[in-house]
């Protein structure tokens, strides 16, 4: 490239520097540190030793890592892929037929849970699922005995809380997508006598399939990274019953001071994110040649 054209690219350098120092460097450092015995304090903090794959071996011999992986899969599948995605789609579909006043009000309620700072949403969810909380009050009205949700069913509580917190994103994506569906297409199908379910399955959903794919990728990535909600509601407990991978990485690194093992868990998460990221980029590239 000639110097003039290189000069034109000069304004990109601040962005590239930031990305290299604060995004790429931590990722590289994470993979490196996961092969050491780096610690939060003590001798290993100043002078970490290379320990090879020891952290990774320990990962698979420990009970906590396979369990956290399983909990993460369940958490993501239930709260993002099923909960947020289907509920968001349902709300967006209902909104196309409802009175404007109703859809405005419901939209505000759904978005409020999403716009609130995460720590506030987490407090609200904590109070809601508390033994004396609103959910048990509602169940009492229905004549059922309440449960100590955060203690007996922590995974269920955080799945419901994350569905509540994140559905707005899917709802907004699907509202935008449904607004782009040409009216005459669905009307033509109506003329041909297609029933509601048929129109949805054969016309509407195929037309918005790109949005569905993008949405699924994005909410999976977001949910994979959820920490604050879980940390405030259950702190991963009781007895690791709601410890997902981000919580496990945090606990190992900062509670037990084992940075090496913590970065090993973090590295697995980063790799997972990379796999989803690669699929996501591929999806978008195929769409626009």
């Amino acid at each position: 490239m000639n110097p003039r054209r290189l000069l034109r690219l000069l304004p990109i350098t601040p962005a590239i520097l930031l990305l290299l120092v604060f995004l790429l460097a931590p990722v590289v450092w994470s993979f490196y540190a996961s092969f050491t015995d780096a610690a939060l304090s003590g001798k290993a903090a100043k002078d970490p030793q290379w320990v090879g794959a020891e952290n990774y071996v320990r990962m698979f011999s420990d009970d906590s890592f396979p369990m956290a992986t399983w909990l993460t899969v369940v958490f993501v599948a239930a709260s993002a892929v099923l909960g947020q995605n289907l509920l968001g789609l349902l709300i967006a579909l209902l909104m196309t037929r409802s009175r404007k006043m109703v859809s405005d009000w419901v939209g505000t309620a759904v978005v409020a849970a999403w716009v609130l700072p995460e720590i506030v949403a987490a407090f609200a969810a904590y109070a809601y699922f508390n033994r004396d909380g609103t959910l048990n009050q509602l169940l009492a009205v229905l004549g059922t005995h309440g449960l100590d949700w955060l203690y007996s069913f922590p995974l269920v509580a955080i799945i419901l809380a994350n569905t509540w917190r994140g559905t707005a994103f899917s709802m907004l994506v699907y509202r935008a997508a449904l607004a782009d569906v040409p009216r005459d297409v669905s009307e033509a199908a109506l003329m041909d006598g297609a029933r509601g379910w048929q129109r949805l399955g054969f016309i509407t959903l195929p037309l918005i399939r790109n949005s569905i794919a993008t949405n699924l990728m994005l909410i999976t990535l977001q949910t994979l990274a959820v920490f604050t909600l879980i940390w405030v509601m259950t702190a991963g407990g009781p007895a690791n019953a709601s410890t997902t991978l981000p919580v496990l990485a945090y606990q190992e690194a900062f509670k037990f001071g084992d940075i090496g093992y913590g970065t090993a868990v973090a590295s697995v998460l980063i790799l997972l994110g990379m796999v989803f990221g690669a699929v996501y980029v591929r999806l978008l590239r195929e769409r626009r040649p």
Partner: peptide, 15 residues
């Protein structure tokens, strides 16, 4: 775009 998919909570320990 690939960078947007990095789970930020995962890089907090290395950061």
């Amino acid at each position: 775009l690939f960078g947007t998919s990095l789970p930020v909570t995962a890089i907090m320990v290395p950061v």
